[in-house]
Design a protein around this nucleic acid. Structure first.
Ligand SMILES: [Mn+2]
Ligand SMILES: [Mn+2]
Ligand SMILES: [Zn+2]
Ligand SMILES: [Zn+2]
Lengths: 137, 137
DNA sequence: TTAACTTTGCAATAGTGTTGCACTAACTTA
DNA sequence: TAAGTTAGTGCAACACTATTGCAAAGTTAA
């Protein structure tokens, strides 16, 4: 993914595309999976953890990435689709491979509709499937 | 729940019912919701964190409790049904209230069946719904 | 060029989860 | 029962994740 493409993308979400942010976004997008703060940190030794952390938070607030809580012990982040607003209709299943630890967006699998008991309302959900991915099989 | 009931229960799962374990189990069962290590720790000042931790691990290994990763930052634990073996058929949805932080088993809502793409196999899942509970509404 | 604002780096801190080790309680068996 | 063995507990230390205050550096606008 081209840098100026990324810059346009970030700007379209009202986030100023600094060098660090562009780098973080690019890494996430190209990895094709969800990455944790630690994952990102070790992909570029140079950059400060807190800088990456704040980039991720900014992205999250602006629907540029979404967090995935896969039970691995650290929250991971994956890039959102262009039109995502991280509401209940944009949510999808995530797959966590217990062998390799990779976490993947299953965008083809939207989170099924759930009818909750009276009195409950919801606006978000996480559906994580744990198993073995084709790579590790 | 009576202590000797709990003791029988633990024994039936091949766990020796020590005083600490009985206390931890009782607390979980009576709370009616999922509790974290920290939650338990503060309910009885006296008992060591590591003791509770190890009780929970023992319970988990023996299908006495199941972990719930609700995104709150700490793993919570809830008591299993008698016949639970924590396999895919015993799994159910959990509800996390973003107001009060309570996490509840929705045993009436089994995790829906998901058809994964070719090559993926799974044996576990977590389905967490985030919203507002009747109490907080 | 100065002033105002934003981003980054660094260091410190809180919180969760986990383990080694020594002590004690419980159980086993001669 | 007494000695030997195993299991459980408490304490302290530690690893790792997440988060923040603050000062330095960079950016923008007047
Ligand atoms: Mn995703
Ligand atoms: Mn449950
Ligand atoms: Zn894998
Ligand atoms: Zn609530």
């Amino acid at each position: 993914m081209e840098n100026n493409e990324i810059e346009k993308k970030l700007e379209s979400k009202n986030v100023k595309p600094t060098a660090m942010r562009t780098l973080v976004y690019k890494t996430l997008a190209e990895s094709g999976k969800a990455l944790s703060l630690a994952d990102l940190e070790q992909r570029f030794e140079k950059v400060e953890r807190s800088t990456i952390f704040r980039a991720l938070k900014t992205f999250e607030e602006n629907f540029i990435v979404h967090p995935v809580v896969d039970g691995s012990g650290s929250v991971k982040y994956a890039v959102c689709d262009d039109d995502c607003t991280c509401n209940i209709h944009d949510l999808h299943v995530h797959f966590y491979c217990t062998r390799c630890g990779r976490t993947r967006c299953m965008k083809e699998l939207p989170i099924p509709n759930i009818k909750l008991p009276e009195g409950y309302t919801y606006d978000n959900a996480q559906f994580i499937i744990n198993g073995v991915c084709p790579r590790c099989d």
